[in-house]
Design a protein around this nucleic acid. Sequence first.
RNA 1: CGGGGUGUAGCUCAGCUUGGUAGAGCGCUUCGUUCGGGACGAAGAGGCCGCAGGUUCAAAUCCUGUCACCCCGACCA
Length: 629
Amino acid sequence: MPTYWTKTLIPTLRQVPAEAEVPSHQLMLRAGYLRKLSAGVYDYLPLGWRSLRKAMQIVREEMDAIGAAEVFLPAMQPIELWERTGRRIAYGQNLFVVKDRHGREHALGPTHEEVITELVSAYIESYKDLPKVLYQIQTKFRDEFRPRFGVLRSREFQMKDAYSFHLNLDGPPGSGSLSETYDAMHGAYCKIFQRCGIPYMVVEAESGPIGGSASHEFMCPSPTGEDVILQNDAGYAANVEKCETGKRTFDINAAPTGGLQEIYTPDCKSIDDLCAQWKEFAGGGKLKPENTLKTRVYEIRVYKRTGDDWAIWIAVVRGDREVNDGKVRHHIEQQYKHNIDVLRVEVAPISDERAQDLGIPLGFIGPHFVGSVTEPKLQARIWNIFDYEAANGGFWVTGGNRVNYHVRHYCMRREFGWNDHDGPITCDILNLIHHTQITDIRNAVEGDPAPEDRGGGTLKVTKGIEIGHIFKLGYKYTEALEVTVVNENNEPVKPMMGCYGIGVNRILASAIENEQGHDDNGIIWPRALAPFDVLLVPIKYDGQVKDVTDNLAAEMEAAGTDVLIDDRDERPGVKFKDADLIGVPLRVTIGEKGLSEGMVEVKSRNGRINEKVAPDSAAARIAQLLASL
RNA sequence: CGGGGUGUAGCUCAGCUUGGUAGAGCGCUUCGUUCGGGACGAAGAGGCCGCAGGUUCAAAUCCUGUCACCCCGACCA
């Protein structure tokens, strides 16, 4: 049966609701796809739900095609599971927690690793049961601090999550390794986004707090995207958390620009404030952020078999750059990698209280902090890590290592105590004597050199919407929840996991958000996601026009085409405007004028098709045209 | 959670400074004329001015509190 406009619910809005900022949000509200119930919580109206279901179905088909089995899991999950995996704390405030009448707490699942792992632990006992790939498409919950951009960042959303379980990371084809499934998922994701007709790119990603070794994000390039992607011309693409830079030059022997001078800078802890007030502090002149050195202090906890230890690392980048926590963490972890005594290393920005206890004046720290420390126990534990860019000569302003003071004419070589006649220092000397290392620790920016082994060249910045993410998870959940299977030798072993998510609502938003997805008049759907394939617009739904419309609709529906009939008693202008707004790919206009010439008019929303067809052959022609979209 | 802003009709907003019985446009209802790109005329319906206190003869308007929403930041598989 075709759908009649007057029977369904399509509340189009002439004006843009004030709350909507990005095109997808504005248009989904205006075109009657969505209604906001409260912050970050939306009703999907008939059009919205139809489109969402189309996206879900594509995802479902491609998951099934690679042998994944669909399940349906609880949204309400015992909090105990989340405590056992440590994710109650890791998720923190973003986790929705509800209490039942007995006072027991439950998490409203933002993902289902815990639940699926528990499920698998109950039934999977032997290596012969592996690999196993399960997935679900369900509502997930996140207590976002700040929901925004409509369905792009909401508190309730539809996710496809797939989880796989394996004996091995790698292996020959057909061995059921994690890598094999990971690659199959990678392929399935490409097919899904292709079928949905949305532009996408695959970028390398940090696996983040979820843990694991390898990870890719699927991004839809869009100016409204919240994620920053860097890429070179040779096909290297990574998100900003992951993106490495190629070689950048540095000069640790550069001469100072003047004698080190203390400047009194009361209560001035940020680079922005420092630059803004520099004139009064320094008695004239201007200071730009790129002439400052920013320091961030990390505390490292080292858990060893022979007793725990700790250290302080000071990360130094140019004042206008951002320290990349992940790069700092990786670099520090590398330092302990070959020490078999070390069980685990924790790297975290130092807390205010801890800094106070140790006498570290946060906000006024410079890279030469160690020189101002008199306590030998602390002194021996301090390490520096410079970004390449920060290890250069030139005019530098940085912290004075004393509350309310900064210094100017900072010079690395001199501040480490080397005189002009001492000859050049080397990286080895810096490392051995000064506990100081130089590497890439800041977020990559537009124009940085790309890594040489990834094709080199220059990095360019693109913004994107994250629509999919695949991880090799490893043992995080099977270990925490104590899952074992027996191997060929009847020995208990932990299976390893992969997890693979797709934000289904974001598929819709991305389709609209990208350039081909909308114009000034409304949405332009790719056929695969459109709520209907064809919109029939009878100029006046009456008499011969009505008969032709109904016959055409019946014929097309019989052939499996989704048809919407605008049977409203509205003026043609209103119908055409609404047709453009809701974005159905093909519009067929049936009017007395056309019929008198024996024609109906077929137009595509994307503007490529505009032809007149005899009513009798219209259904066949439309089917043809649809196939070409 | 810090900073800023807004809550008045289904939607977009005015009115608030200077207290005196609630407004416009769009949408909705009825009638008429229209009818291939958001028609025109006439007549209507619709709001405890977010909520709770307070000041006052009188509060949408002033004060206090509270809630919700939006923006920037921080945060974010």
